[in-house]
Structures are given as structure tokens and as C-alpha cells.
Amino acid sequence: MGRRVKILCVCGSGTVSSAMAASKLKDVLGEHGYDVDAVECSPISAESALASGGFSLMACVSPVYEDLGVPKVNAVGLLTGFGEDKVIEDCLAILKAEEE
């Protein structure tokens, strides 16, 4: 089992699109050796969701404008396939930086 990382997946309803992004992240980051613990929420509840602590990054399918102190990645590419590689690269860069 790979390193366990917590990722907050954010979308408008806090359920549907974030669940899509979460399932993709689990698969792809899993191939890179990460065991993804994804928590789903809406932008409005992001701050309270982060309060439980330990999140490496936020994968945002709907935009989050505030700086909540956790790195953000625009994750729409996970749904459309457009720029999916870039989303994964951004996530990996954040996770790698955390390890150093």
C-alpha cells in the first residue's frame, strides 16, 4: 500500500462532480503509489471540511476563490480528459514537495 494522502475534492453540490474527480484521482494517483483518502465537499463547506486537518491539497472542480491555506489544483480536466495530465502533474508536484 502506498503513502496515504488526504485530498479534498470540491464541487458545487459537494457530491456528484467531486465524486467523479475523486474516483479518477484514486485510480491515477494510485498508479503513482499513493493511497488517496478523498473527502468531498462544496466550496461553501471547504473551510470546515479542511478543519479536520491533514489535507495535502484541494482538487477543485468548481472554483474556490479564497486562500484556505491548502494548495489548490483546478481539477476540471479530470472530468473532460482535457488537460488531465496537467492536473495529475500538479497534484504530484504538490505531494512530492510535501515529502521533501
Binding site: 458545487g12 453540490s13 459537494g14 462532480s17 462544496s42 473532460t80 482535457f82
Partner: peptide, 24 residues
């Protein structure tokens, strides 16, 4: 209401779509 706050349009490779939805 949700669409107004958090739109669901997506630009795909060969088509533009929307996937409106809300909570369960």
C-alpha cells in the same frame, strides 16, 4: 439554483455539454 451558483458546462474535445444536477 445550483446552476446559477455553480455552473456545469464542460468543453469536451468534439462537443460542448452541460451536466446539470443537484443533491440526492
Amino acid at each position: 439554483e445550483r446552476e446559477a451558483d455553480f455552473p456545469t458546462g464542460l468543453i469536451l474535445q468534439d462537443i460542448e455539454i452541460a451536466m446539470p444536477h443537484t443533491a440526492g
